[in-house]
Design a protein around this nucleic acid. Structure first.
Lengths: 119, 119
DNA sequence: CCAATATATTGACGCTGATCGATACGTATG
DNA sequence: CATACGTATCGATCAGCGTCAATATATTGG
């Protein structure tokens, strides 16, 4: 804490802190982390923009990354709940997870929560 | 690419990729990265929940982190455009940046862009 | 001008993560 | 069953990040 005299017009926080529940916070962090890499962000956008599930080999073809790297990103997206995978023979098809899209849509509200809208 | 015969009901992507402009993509990545750490997320939520700018010493008091660590997180939030800092004598007061809040609010739309809303 | 205090910066350390080559796994085909 | 092929996993490497102690910078008070 401070020991100097503080300006009168800048009081300490009036609003009590309302930290997120640890589960919610971890979900937000995981979601943000999943989208915090340029390659992974574009992979997810490619998948989310498709009307039908997308084959891994087509995803790989769109990026200047090796197949194991793309596979790694797909795993991260899957574990973050943003995409789902289904097998069709040898091929794996990835599609956006509706639940993940929902969490993404609610992300700003969850982060701001009771923040005041300024300006 | 694949050399095997592919199932007929899972065609290659019909929708052309619409990658984000590199500036937009970097902004999204920076924003997500800024919120991808639990401590930093809570610091931002604390700041964004206040009706008035918040003194650094009050922020430090709310977390189990050393002052330089909090200062580091504040810098990251500042460089991501999420918070703004103003001096009042010796004290620095941090407040949510309205522009950053706007970008946060538009984040889901920017990520999904032309994605189809499913289920 | 000096001492005290609030905040920022620096340097170091440990850990995580992005990437790739090599390899394993699983499935279809002949 | 053997071979080929699509995808996942493993191991290694290198960069980046969160954290802290130490130090620097800036501002106020005496």
């Amino acid at each position: 804490m401070s020991s100097r005299a503080r300006p009168a017009d800048c009081p300490p926080p009036s609003r009590p802190v309302a930290p997120l529940a640890s589960a919610e916070r971890d979900a937000v962090v995981a979601l943000c982390r999943a989208l915090a890499d340029p390659t992974r962000l574009e992979i997810f956008r490619l998948i989310a923009a498709q009307p039908a599930p997308l084959c891994v080999c087509d995803i790989v073809a769109h990026f200047d990354r090796q197949q194991p790297t793309v596979s790694h990103h797909l795993r991260v997206l899957r574990e973050a709940g943003l995409v789902r995978a289904t097998r069709r023979g040898v091929w794996m098809y990835y599609a956006a997870d509706p639940e993940g899209l929902g969490r993404l849509a609610r992300l700003p509200a969850l982060v701001q929560e009771d923040a005041v809208a300024v300006g």
